[in-house]
Simulated assay, not measured.
Amino acid sequence: MEIIEIKGKPTVKVLDKGYVRMVDTMGDDLTVVNAARVSYDKQKEELDERDERLIRFLAREGHTSPFRHASLQFEIYAPLMVARQWWKYVVGSSHQDNMVAWNESSRRYVTEEPTFYILAPDEWRQAPENSKQGSGDPVDTVDGIEISGKLIRFINEGERLYREALEVGICAEQARLFLPAYGMYVRWYWTSSLQGVAHFLNQRLAHDAQKEIQGYAQAVDVLARKDFPRSLEELVK
C-alpha cells in the first residue's frame, strides 16, 4: 500500500474514496522497552538487540502492559458498514478501557455533500454456500452491472429526498433519515493504545474478516509499523 500525505500527515487510501490518516503517535518501540525496564530503574536511549529480545519476550509471554504506554491516533474515512463493524470491535474488545477513544462526525450538525461507497460491477460477491456470514465468489459481471446500477439509482433518490427535506426546513438530524446509510462515508478519530491496535489488526487482518475492513486494517498496519516495527512484528501474527 502506498503512503501519501493528506493535511501534512501520512495517509493510505482505501476502497474508492476512503482513507486512513495517521494523525499522531505517542512513543515508539523504545517506549515499550523503557516501560518494561522501569521496574529495575533502567532507561535506554536507543533500541538494541537486547531490547528487541525483550519485546519478543513480552509479546510471547503475554506481558502486555508495556505496550499500553504507547498510543496511536488515526483519522478514518470509511463507509458506515465498516465504521459500525469497527465500533463493535471497540465495544467488545477487552482493551476498550486502555486508552481507546472514538469521535465521529455527525449529520445532526454536518450537512456537507454526502459521499457514498459505490461498488464497481466486478466487486459484488455472492453469499457463501455454507455460512450465514461473510461472502463467497464474485457475481457474474452482467449481474454486477445491473446491481451497481440499482445501487446508484437508490442513492440518487435518497439524496434528492434529503435535499428536498432540507429545503422545506426539516432539521438536519431528521432529514438524514432519507440517506441510504450503510454505504455512506463517515469520518472519525480513533485513538488506541499500541496493544489495542495490535488486537484490532489480529482480528481484522484475518482471512475470514469482511474484505472491506481488511483493507482498512492493512492501512492501519502499514502506518503503525513506521513507529512500532518491532512491537507489531511480535504482536501481530
Rank of each mutant, 00 (worst) to 15 (best):
S135W: 04
I155P: 02
I152M: 14
F154G: 07
I170C: 11
I3N: 12
A101W: 06
L30Y: 09
E173I: 07
A120I: 05
M81C: 05
I55R: 09
E104F: 00
A35S: 13
R107N: 03
T115L: 05
G183W: 05
R53Q: 15
E173Q: 15
F178L: 12
K132F: 10
S94F: 01
I3R: 11
I213H: 04
S71A: 14
Q203I: 10
V220K: 00
T141M: 10
Y162K: 04
L223V: 06
R107C: 02
K237N: 12
Y182Q: 12
L232C: 13
R50P: 01
R125L: 10
F74S: 06
R160I: 03
Q73C: 13
R230N: 13
H199G: 07
L47P: 11
R50Y: 12
E46F: 11
I4A: 13
W87V: 04
E167V: 06
L194P: 01
A83Q: 04
V142K: 15
Q218W: 07
E113Q: 00
I118M: 01
G8W: 10
D227G: 06
Q85Y: 05
L177P: 03
Y89I: 03
K9F: 08
L47Y: 15
E146Q: 13
M22I: 08
R84W: 00
A219G: 09
G144Q: 09
V186D: 03
D29S: 10
G215A: 11
E104S: 00
A78V: 05
A36K: 10
V220G: 05
I55K: 12
R68T: 13
G18Q: 03
T191R: 15
A224Y: 02
I155M: 06
Y89A: 02
M81R: 08
V90Q: 03
T191Y: 08
V142D: 13
S193A: 01
D51C: 14
H199T: 11
F154P: 00
A120E: 15
A127P: 05
